[in-house]
Design a protein around this nucleic acid. Structure first.
Lengths: 132, 132
DNA sequence: CGGCATCCTCTGGGATACTG
DNA sequence: CAGTATCCCAGAGGATGCCG
């Protein structure tokens, strides 16, 4: 391994930092959605695609591969005439639902404050000249 | 306002969705770092810049503006000869430290599993031909 | 010192078409 | 049906330079 730089107080300029690793994953557009879709059990690719919303197949594949690589879900290929691939959360993946839920709860609870703040902020800028 | 589409079960194809709003914010490269840096009290721009790590001034400004707009922090300009601008978390911003901490804790706890999964996954692909 | 303007690069996300 | 290969675009992130 390369020389581990200063882990500091646990922050994230360093891609090796745990925070960074997780943040990169949940920061992307689809991972959280996929976890949500798989919470109730395994789903095959096509069903997942619909459940998640209009994701391009390529992008969904990318997302699933990354999650599989990180051990968040398993990919099971069934040797059938029409190929069938099932995706299922691992225990690790399922354990992420907790923290995500915490975040979601915060989001729902404070959304009005955020949107309110935006309106106030924007209102102070939109009419920069007079009209006040 | 535009017609509010189906809020569904609280998910995020819709930019209006609370989850999306928050996820977009914490997903970006610096917001979480800024919150961490400001946890112990207000800091002026230049100090913040150093604390956070090698962020480009432009990018830090962008991040701070977005956070200010969302009501996560306040921006105070002191009318001095050498300009001095202080940034401080609002109660709303401070309340985000909780959920973030939850995520950070999860990250630190499960990092080894993730990295282990990656090694296993990559090892199965790197030598695609023989050598096994 | 803080921050805006400009320019540039890199990559996440996506549409399309083709293969096993 | 699942996945790959191409091509493409927009935007985040960043380097540099100038201004109040």
């Amino acid at each position: 391994m390369v020389t581990k730089s200063t882990p500091d107080r646990g922050d994230a300029f360093d891609p090796d930092c745990p925070t960074r690793v997780v943040l990169d994953r949940i920061g992307d557009k689809w991972t959280v959605l996929v976890i949500g879709a798989l919470q109730d059990g395994p789903l095959r690719f096509s069903v997942l695609r619909v459940r998640v919303g209009g994701v391009a197949a390529k992008v969904l594949t990318q997302t699933l591969r990354a999650m599989e690589r990180d051990g968040l879900l398993t990919r099971t290929v069934h040797a059938q005439v029409p190929p069938r691939v099932d995706y299922e959360l691992t225990d690790l993946g399922a354990s992420l639902t907790g923290p995500i839920q915490t975040l979601t709860d915060w989001a729902e609870t404070h959304l009005s404050q955020i949107l309110g703040a935006r309106e106030t902020y924007d209102a102070a800028l939109d009419p920069p000249l007079d009209a006040r």
